[in-house]
Design a protein around this nucleic acid. Structure first.
Ligand code: DGT
Ligand code: MG
Ligand code: MG
Ligand code: ZN
Length: 586
DNA sequence: GCCGTTTTCGGCCCGACTGTTTTCAGTCG
């Protein structure tokens, strides 16, 4: 067997790279062939790409453990695709793809990234003008050569230049927390319009993804026209991209796109299902509908011409023989099968957290006193917080030494005497050193109510060393919780390399709790790690990482992340009252 | 190319918006 695993194989066979190969195959199959079946073969590659991109396990690992047979167990991967994956893992290339690329040598990501430019356009542009990339396209548009291409006009040529500019500004997906206030503000304006019954941000916002590509508003109203009027003329709108009787598309001044769908009340459920997605989840539902002799779209569930459901989402799912599924689970990653068996887990609810176990004060890098943080938490509806200031080796953050931590613990006890119906726990965010040891002595940590530990330095150790560093911290009997275990900052830096599966296993063996840091820049653990952890029976906590009382609002995003990882209330220890929480820790 | 509680062959989600389409193709949600 392939012991020694990947040693001899190409280092680039990461899931993301394999998915990219599949997408390129999908694109070139669609473009390059006249075969009427080409679009379906193309879609097969795209489906495989999506599956692989969101697979928690490494495809290269699967291959090294179980070979082709292992690959075939991946949904949407059959003999042909498995062989191509094998070839890519072994050689770093896929011959068939190289051949296709030679025939249409274009930068797919660049050209496809431009709105309104799809496969047909890219092929046409290459055939007529030898356009290979963005720079070529910009040049021919500026030179006025584009208008000569069939299907193009002077106006389209002009639009193209605008779209190229927009693409070049390169707006990545937005972090949900950063635009949440804007999302909610527009949602409220829409809901207050006369004649509007419901207004909600659907799409990836309703699924509470950590980043969102655009904002998708669904509104029910008997007369869509005034809603469309308002939406396209809001002060936030920079440009109207499209507008029809049911849908409108705008670009907001903040650089993000917003879509609007307006439907009558009797289509609320089906439209909400459609517009919440995910696409993959919806396609699966629509296939189920077909197999039951039904048709599902945003307007309802139909048997022939007759509408049989659509007023509520529950009704839509029921018509398909399914239990209702929480939006956060709708990613086509096993939730539909559970719903068919009426086994959808009861996810941890928003607003059920009783405490927050990562809270900073001005004594390290926070901006409020311990008492202000405590009163803020109480006002937010919490019953307890752990004050987790940084420790001495994190000098930049004003970390405390052992002596100072003990003094702080004493002050916290005095404060608790003054606080009614609220408890502050003495704790710390202890810095994990390069070798996995802690920068505070055990005899100090023993006097705290609980201890969190985290990595804040040496991010570029090799994966084995980084993993062992966290493992050593988890094995330390003083450490109750590992904070932000992967260290990632969304859209800023990847986490340090770490074998999260091993960390999860060790957490299980040592009764160490893992954190979901709810700060919207972190959301760490991320959704799929949450799912892995709870599957193994590891307990989690959801913390705000607050540095000011207003930051308790971040907890919502942490709960969302837990729900996206299918966590129930039993999995989340800070849904417990403080005494029971402390008993549950090691 | 993938896949099978009606199929190992014959299907593959389905509709809105744009443009110049005169009855639909391309792109996107
Ligand atoms: N049935 C069907 N629904 C789709 C398709 N594409 C998009 N949708 C639905 C599901 C999506 O969640 C919803 C909004 O589309 P978006 O492109 O905005 O995707 P979404 O919001 O999920 O992700 P995003 O963060 O915006 O990239 O529209 C499709 O091809 N078929
Ligand atoms: Mg969206
Ligand atoms: Mg959208
Ligand atoms: Zn930290």
């Amino acid at each position: 067997m392939l012991r020694g695993g990947l040693a001899g194989y190409c280092c680039l066979a990461k899931n993301a790279n394999i998915a990219k190969v599949m997408r390129d195959l999908g694109f070139l199959t669609e473009v390059g062939e006249d075969d009427p079946n080409a679009q379906f073969r193309s879609r097969a590659y795209y489906r495989a790409a999506d599956t692989i991109a969101s697979l928690p396990e490494d495809v290269a690992d699967i291959y090294s453990k179980n070979g082709i047979k292992g690959l075939l167990e991946i949904p949407s991967v059959g003999k042909n695709i498995a062989a191509k994956i094998e070839e890519y893992i072994k050689t770093g290339k896929v011959r068939a793809l190289e051949d296709m690329k030679a025939k249409l040598p274009v930068n797919i990501d660049e050209l496809y990234g431009i709105e309104g430019v799809g496969p047909k356009t890219i092929k046409m542009l290459y055939d007529k003008l030898r356009v290979k990339n963005l720079a070529d396209l910009e040049r021919v548009a500026k030179e006025g050569k584009l208008r000569a291409v069939p299907g193009f006009t002077e106006k389209k040529e002009h639009d193209m230049l605008k779209r190229i500019e927009f693409f070049k500004r390169g707006k990545s997906r937005r972090i949900i927390g950063e635009i949440y206030p804007l999302i909610k503000q527009i949602e409220k304006s829409l809901s207050q319009l006369p004649g509007v019954k419901n207004a909600i941000a659907a799409g990836s916002v309703r699924r509470m993804k950590e980043t969102i590509g655009d904002i998708d508003y669904l509104v029910t109203a008997s007369d869509p026209e005034p809603v469309m009027e308002f939406f396209t003329k809001m002060p936030e709108v920079q440009e109207v991209v499209g507008k029809g009787p049911a849908k409108a598309f705008v670009r907001l001044a903040s650089g993000i796109d917003a879509d609007l769908l307006v439907v009558p009340e009797e289509s609320w459920g089906s439209a909400l299902q459609y517009f919440t997605g995910s696409k993959e989840h919806s396609v699966e539902l629509r296939k189920m509908a077909i197999s039951k002799g039904l048709r599902l779209n945003e307007w309802g569930v139909y048997r022939g011409e007759r509408k049989v459901a659509g007023t509520t989402e529950e009704e839509v799912y029921q018509a398909l023989g399914l239990q209702w599924i929480p939006p956060e689970m709708r990613e086509n990653s096993g939730e539909i099968e559970l719903a068919r068996q009426s086994r959808v887990p009861k996810l941890v609810e928003y607003g059920t957290l009783k405490g927050d176990l990562q809270v900073h004060s001005e004594n390290s890098d926070g901006t409020a006193t311990i008492e202000e943080m405590a009163r803020g938490a109480k006002a937010f509806g919490l019953d307890y917080v752990a004050i987790t200031d940084h420790t001495k080796s994190l000098a930049l953050a004003g970390g405390l030494d052992g002596q100072e931590l003990l003094q702080q613990a004493n002050k916290i006890r005095e404060l608790n005497d003054r606080l009614e119906g609220f408890r502050v726990l003495a704790s710390a965010e202890v810095n994990i050193m390069k070798d996995g040891s802690l920068d505070i002595a055990d005899n100090v940590l023993d006097k705290l109510d609980l201890v969190g530990a985290a990595i804040h330095s040496h991010f570029n150790l090799p994966i084995e060393a980084q993993t062992e560093r966290l493992v050593r911290a988890a094995k330390n009997s003083s450490v109750d919780i590992l904070f932000h275990p992967t260290g990632r900052l969304i859209n800023k830096r990847d986490g340090y390399p770490v074998n999260i599966e091993r960390v999860i296993d060790v957490a299980k063996d040592t009764d160490t709790v893992l954190e979901i840091d709810a700060h919207y820049d972190r959301l760490d653990l991320r959704d799929e790690h949450v799912r892995m952890a709870i599957k193994k029976g590891v307990k989690l906590v959801i913390d705000s990482d607050a540095h000011h009382p207003i930051h308790y609002a971040f907890l919502t995003f942490g709960v969302a992340q837990a729900r996206r990882g299918w966590a129930t209330q039993q999995d989340i220890l800070n849904t417990l009252p403080p005494e029971r929480l402390l008993q549950a820790l090691k």
